[in-house]
């Protein structure tokens, strides 16, 4: 029993990261129409910035939680302005190729500078320890990760679905040319949206640093699963990406308990089945 709950907790933690990352991807794909392959590399960059800040500059976890996503978001906006923007008239395959190339460059640079081995990042003091729930031991930091990820995801969802700012994003996702024909500065919106989406990845990176090893390849192992999550949830669906991210984390955890050998492939099996019966994804809109 303890093993089951343990695996479900691990699943929920992984699911929190899937949700944070696929949410960013979904927002970016929706408005900017870019399949941002660099999302994993930017998540890794977020984790590395936190690690670097602590090791060299004495910047702790809490400031890093703010500064690191900010830096990643700014970097993303520079990428959008200088490179991605030039590809908007072309098929979105080009954006995917560009961000794939950027991933290789960014990961290569980190490999070159820091080698392949992981660096550990301490759990912040206030979140050390844990609680014995009777049926399982709940480490405080892991509970924090789940709570904050869920809160950030649903706050983003609320802003997008229920506020005026979100109405711009939804309208722009549906028809950016027309939104611009009402006097809205859509090119600026795209830059800011891309920045926000990748800042979420940077944020996830900092959250992940105390749990996983901070290594140059930490993003690439995650991003493939996250893309599967986005496809299962429905390309561009905000709600779908959050729910599917958390849900698939749990499915993975359950599989680890029932049949560990299948745990790394179960997400792709789910993807295949979903695509067979609902090609637009679970929450995607039929067009």
């Amino acid at each position: 029993m303890q093993a089951l709950f343990g695996q479900l907790l691990v699943g929920l933690i992984n699911g929190s990261f899937y949700a944070l990352l696929s949410l960013g991807l979904a927002i970016i794909f929706g408005l900017v129409n870019v399949v941002n392959f660099a999302h994993g590399a930017l998540y890794m960059t977020g984790a590395f910035l936190a690690w670097f800040g602590l090791a060299n500059l004495g910047i702790g976890y809490w400031p890093a939680l703010l500064l690191s996503p900010l830096a990643v978001g700014l970097f993303g906006m520079v990428l959008e302005r200088t490179m991605l923007r030039r590809l908007y008239q072309l098929d979105n395959l080009y954006g995917l190729l560009l961000t794939f190339g950027l991933t290789l460059i960014v990961e290569g640079l980190f490999h070159h500078a820091y080698g392949n081995s992981g660096n550990s990042y301490p759990v912040p003091e206030a979140l050390q320890g844990g609680t014995d729930l009777g049926f399982m031991f709940l480490p405080r930091y892991r509970a924090w990760v789940v709570l904050v990820s869920v809160a950030v995801c649903f706050a983003s969802w609320f802003v997008i679905e229920r506020t005026r700012l979100g109405a711009y994003l939804r309208a722009g996702t549906e028809n950016p040319r027309l939104l611009q024909a009402f006097g809205v500065n859509v090119p600026l919106m795209k830059t800011l949206t891309f920045g926000f989406g990748v800042a979420l990845a940077g944020f996830a990176g900092v959250m992940a640093a105390p749990i996983y090893q901070v290594s140059p390849s930490m993003g690439s192992s995650l991003v493939i699963v996250v893309f599967a999550v986005v496809v299962i949830g429905g390309m561009g669906s905000i709600f779908g990406s959050i729910v599917t991210g958390l849900g698939l984390g749990l499915v993975e955890g359950l599989t680890k308990y029932l049949y560990p050998a299948a745990s790394s492939t179960v997400v792709f099996a789910v993807m295949a089945v979903v695509l067979l019966f609902r090609p637009v994804g679970l929450f995607g809109r039929e067009t």
Binding site: E174, N175, L178, Q180, A181, F182, G183, N185, V186
Partner: peptide, 22 residues
Amino acid sequence: THKIVQLGLGYCPEERGIFASL
């Protein structure tokens, strides 16, 4: 486009352009 429209233009497109998700 958005700068032109800000000069005081209003556009009613042929396909009406109502955003379905709003």
